[in-house]
């Protein structure tokens, strides 16, 4: 799908190099916000945006992605390989 927004992650020691939100899939359930409000917020269109891609540890970012009911959050490692979902 085309409507994806990418958020590079530069946190030291992290295995996640990039967070991607698929805005076509996102329905604004806000489960990612509930898991990690430091990383995610909803914008004016009720879509998740990564306001702090470096704010949380890997475990929390993974949990936030896994909590999404439409699998709209994709995670990539430092080599650009998709690690979730």
């Amino acid at each position: 799908m085309a409507n994806q927004r990418e958020y590079p992650r530069a946190k030291e020691g992290s295995n996640i190099g990039k967070i991607v939100v698929d805005r076509d899939l996102c329905i604004g359930a806000a489960s990612c916000v509930a898991v990690s409000p430091a990383t995610f917020e909803l914008d004016g269109e009720n879509k998740a945006v990564a306001i702090g891609p470096n704010a949380a540890d890997d475990e929390t970012v993974k949990m936030a992605a896994q909590s999404c009911p439409t699998k709209a959050i994709l995670l990539f490692d430092k080599d650009g390989k998709q690690i979730y979902p």
Partner: peptide, 12 residues
Amino acid sequence: LNRTPEMAPISK
């Protein structure tokens, strides 16, 4: 209504 970005500060 049309103010979703306020969700974050309100939750805090």
